[in-house]
Nucleic acid binder design. Sequence first.
DNA 1: TCACGTCCTTAAGATGCCGTAAAGATGCAG
DNA 2: CTGCATCTTTACGGCATCTTAAGGACGTGA
Lengths: 234, 234
Amino acid sequence: MNNAAKPRILLVEDDLTVQNLVSTALDLHGYVVSKVCNGQAAIMDAVSHGPSLIMLDLGLPDIDGIEVITKIRSWSAVPIIVISARTEDSDKIAALDAGADDYLTKPFSVDELLARVRANLRRSSMASSESTEASTFDNGPLHIDYAAGYATKDGRELSLTPTEYKLLVLLAKNVDKVLTHTFITHEIWGTSWDSDLASLRVFMRTLRKKIEADPSHPKMIQTHMGVGYRMQRL
Amino acid sequence: MNNAAKPRILLVEDDLTVQNLVSTALDLHGYVVSKVCNGQAAIMDAVSHGPSLIMLDLGLPDIDGIEVITKIRSWSAVPIIVISARTEDSDKIAALDAGADDYLTKPFSVDELLARVRANLRRSSMASSESTEASTFDNGPLHIDYAAGYATKDGRELSLTPTEYKLLVLLAKNVDKVLTHTFITHEIWGTSWDSDLASLRVFMRTLRKKIEADPSHPKMIQTHMGVGYRMQRL
DNA sequence: TCACGTCCTTAAGATGCCGTAAAGATGCAG
DNA sequence: CTGCATCTTTACGGCATCTTAAGGACGTGA
């Protein structure tokens, strides 16, 4: 929508200290910030202003944060970064599965926050401009030709098994986004049960061996402990 | 067709909320929009108005969406973008195999929709302006003369059976693209069922014997396990 | 330090797909 | 009707892929 000059960011946070801290930081870096304190106001603002990105605290006084995500996702693909004071993995995972793009756990550094905002804005602008015709994908030495149905690294064709290719495409189509284990297994196997996680790890291993420069220290596919994986733009 | 000033878009959608949302967005961006709610009306409109692009919801009250695609494709090459609430691969594949050009899953962002519309209109205008396809094809020692209807290897004519020739042409017209088993069998036999895959393998064998330097280690036609085949540019 | 959970890595067994040959079916020309 | 070319079907060995299991590395909290 309004990708013009300054991106508008909707900040949903009931803790006023954090709200001021974050909004100041965003403001200083040239973003326009709307601040709201609860879920209802968040949804209202998202509808009326169509922000370029949403930062959402899960612990809201009125509605459960997950529900806010679900509502917004039903009509919009705007990037949502979740902030959570809770350290339990289950919250993050639920949020990501509901459609969140990224998450931050309190306390977090302002630098990290800004980096994630940049990454998510970049990804969403990519997605809306290339979108379809992006029948190809590039990231560092990696190149995927979706239409042709294969991938290359440094120009040489990779011999990927069907599952490896599916997995790679899934990660590529969600660059810079954390994908949960269950999301990935659902996408690849349809119905997933626990033991697919073991398989997923093995496929991760073989895929990394084929696309990473140093498979023991992966840069392209990063693992998020207890949560899932994420392809990083190089 | 009428590629003049404003492209005409036919919107087939029974959910009035979505219909209004989409048609408003398209209208704002300078497209002329026809709205219909069912498959019968869609086909009628496509016949009488000859739209530049069709947006088709798969879940229609009267006819199955796939059937609408097949009907329209029988006489027109107009770009068709499918909209569906279903996320399963099988639906996408069925729609695309039937002749759809692109696929959107609900919920989708308006920006993405517009991007896809632009991309497909551009592509179709490209296709209609180029129009003149090359009447010959060369790849390494292989040479095909489409107009004359025969192929040569190292200058000597190959004696190919009708089916072998069809198969070769199909692969040649999609060089560097992976063609799925079902796509190939559809193209060659029209309607395909399971056992055609066995035949396909046999034809692959005989074709390779005739065009490959070393049929046991094929270079020109590569197999993608569990997916299909692909002709590689040498 | 120890126990615990998560992830990585490897290897072996099970499964399913592919290539291949050969026999049967079909269609057509003489 | 017979012979030939083409296509289809079947069967099986070999191999790519997937799954499963087990051991080790690493970090975290008691």
